[in-house]
């Protein structure tokens, strides 16, 4: 059985949602990891959930990166193990340098919560191996700062290394400004590390793993993780 850990910061609020989705639809072995932990159990995948880790004062995710657990997450990632940051978790990955770039406030200056369409443009990493290239997923976003920014040089790097994983698009798959919910560079919704073992994404896959909630598209991400881990075991 594959083991998942969900990190809990004092202001995390999607920690239970991630736990619930994994426990019921992915793997029975899932545990919470308190942010003050300086030791973590044997795990196969760590999830940094959404929320407002430390109230998001200063900058989203800025204080969280000083939590003891982040050192553990970094070490875990260096070993090539899987780390996925969702929403605030993505912001923490950016702030802690595990992924390149930064988040700005949404260009509308307002929080946005709605279902969006995503195009999976990189399906060769462990988080997307069960998705067909250019498939369109319907997964909700819920954030005030999801406007991904990276300087032109960094952007070229991202492209060159095939680190762009998800892009916002419309229901038909057209990637345009109207389908960009927050103003992200290049409609970027999710990126991975060069090695492909760290994924950050703004949309919430854990919110659509249950048919009763309207969409099952989020499950594809978790099933990919499951499959890639099973293969590597």
């Amino acid at each position: 059985m594959l083991r998942f850990g969900v990190v809990v910061f004092p202001g995390s609020n999607c920690d239970h949602d991630c736990y619930y989705a994994i426990k019921h639809f992915v793997s029975d072995k899932v545990e919470f990891i308190w942010h003050k932990s300086d030791k973590i159990n044997e795990l196969d995948c760590i999830v940094l959930p959404g929320g407002f880790s430390y109230g998001d004062y200063l900058r989203t995710g800025a204080i969280a990166r000083f939590s003891p657990v982040i050192e553990q997450v970094k070490r875990f990632a260096r070993q090539g193990k899987l780390v996925i940051g969702i929403c605030n978790g993505f912001q923490i990955l950016l702030e802690s340098g595990l992924l390149p770039g930064a988040m700005l406030r949404n260009r509308s200056l307002r929080f946005v919560c709605k279902y969006v369409s995503l195009k999976a443009v990189n399906t060769s990493i462990p988080f997307t191996c069960e998705i067909s290239k250019n498939d369109i997923l319907k997964i909700p976003v819920a954030h005030g700062e999801g406007n991904y920014y990276i300087d032109p040089q960094g952007f070229e790097e991202l492209k060159k290394n095939n680190q762009i994983v998800f892009r916002y698009c419309d229901a038909q798959g057209n990637i345009d400004d109207a389908s960009n919910p927050n103003g992200s560079v290049y409609n970027i919704a999710g990126i991975c590390s060069k090695e492909g073992n760290v994924l950050g994404m703004m949309p919430h896959p854990e919110r659509c793993c249950d048919a009763r909630l309207g969409s099952l598209d989020g499950l594809a991400v978790f099933q990919s993780i499951l499959k890639s881990l099973t293969l590597s075991h």
């Binding site: 609020n13 929080f111 946005v112 919560c113 709605k114 909700p140 819920a142 249950d210 009763r212 909630l213």
Partner: peptide, 19 residues
């Protein structure tokens, strides 16, 4: 009223069966 409710996170806790 979607201008209003899209500013609220109405899905967190994954219990909202009817949006």
């Amino acid at each position: 009223k979607s201008w209003v409710y899209e500013q609220y996170d109405y899905m967190v806790r994954t219990n909202t069966v009817v949006l």
